Simulated assay, not measured.
Amino acid sequence: MEFKVDFVVTWVDGSDPKWIAEKNKYFLNAGNSKKGMNSKKAFREWGTFKYWFRGIQKFAPWVNKVYLVTYHQKPDWININNEKLIIVDHYDFLNHSNLPVFSSNSIEVNLHRIEGLSEHFVCFNDDMYLTSPVTKNDFFDEKGFPKYNTAINPIIPARNGTANFQVNDMEIINSHFTRNEIMKNGKFLNIRQGVRNLIKTGLYSHSKFICGFYENHLPYPLLKSTMQKLWKKEPEVLKNTSKNKFRSKTDVNIWLFKYWQIASGEYSIGNPKLGKLFTLDDADQALWKLVNSRKYKIMCINDGFNIKDENKVMEDFNRALNKLLPEKSEFEK
């Protein structure tokens, strides 16, 4: 089966004074805390985004189009004339009555509305870097089904984490599929899921309901048709998420569509060694060496909450990525 695959990446420059002023008009009035999931950390810009594009050009030259989703912003170095690049403003696909929104959940549950987006696409956060060559087959199988690596796994209720979204996602999944259907469809006991995931499934699969799915925080291969299907089945919860200007405990998130693919069995098992999540709280020379080792095809290098020296981490981070990807991409001026 021949099909095109697009990449979608969401980005914000949290240091932009105009954007900060607009966000602040709504932020405290909405009862938000300066700490937590809507804190400054969630919008921090490390100056590394150009390396995201360099990684795409070097390690995924086969990609059809790259959709950069942003709000009245674009990097000053971006080459808007690149034939593969399409810059999408929130006003281009989100309900205007909800704007502005500053929540990734509100944005991502509507990505299927982007004009021209292919049926098969991969959603990236701007902290998910390609560090070695990837193929279309890393994300989709020959039938066009998304590829995931998963397990039955409890949802961890960490402060400022994603647990509320995951619980809301799983409530919907459990309302549409029985426990037995999920176990039958989910391919959880296949050795290709990896030993760790098999152990997790063995430990947590005996409850009355499925408690949750393992989340590896890597890019999300998705189908537009699945997103459209969920919007027909669960319009109210998705509309409510779309209205929230900031992330809320009542939200669902983009994982809902991934979880639907798993629960329905319309997915294939991915490579458990494709990539890994890292945090800048633990940034040291070992991490920077790993970036250049090409051990993983994808590294999600997430902001931390307890970075001791942000300036040093920023310098080291950029230096490590520049060593891996020193050449300008065609996405840059």
Rank of each mutant, 00 (worst) to 15 (best):
I152Q: 00
E142A: 14
F121T: 11
I107C: 05
N164K: 13
L230W: 06
Q166P: 01
L189G: 11
K147N: 01
K224F: 01
H120Q: 04
A151G: 13
N149T: 15
S207D: 11
P219T: 03
N180P: 10
D126Q: 03
S103N: 10
Q193P: 01
R192K: 14
V122S: 09
I172E: 06
K232E: 04
N160L: 12
G144D: 03
E119I: 02
T131E: 08
R159Q: 11
N168G: 06
K229C: 08
F213A: 13
D141V: 11
T162P: 10
N160W: 15
F121G: 12
S225R: 06
S106G: 13
T135E: 14
N174I: 00
N185T: 09
S106L: 10
S205P: 00
L203V: 15
S132G: 02
H176D: 12
L218C: 02
Y204M: 03
F165E: 04
L222S: 10
N105L: 06
K229H: 05
V167E: 06
M170H: 00
F165L: 08
G194L: 12
T201K: 00
N125Y: 12
T131H: 14
L130Y: 07
G212K: 04
D126G: 08
L130V: 03
Q166N: 02
N216L: 13
V122T: 14
I173M: 09
I199N: 09
M227H: 05
D127I: 05
Q228M: 15
K187F: 07
L223A: 10
H176A: 00
N185G: 11
S104D: 13
S175E: 14
N105R: 04
K200T: 00
D169E: 15
M183S: 10
E234P: 04
P133Y: 06
I173P: 00
F213R: 11
H176N: 12
E181K: 14
A158H: 13
A151F: 09
G186K: 08
S132E: 12
P235L: 09
S118K: 02
P154M: 05
R192V: 12
Y129Q: 11
I156N: 11
D169S: 14
E171T: 00
T162N: 13
N160M: 15
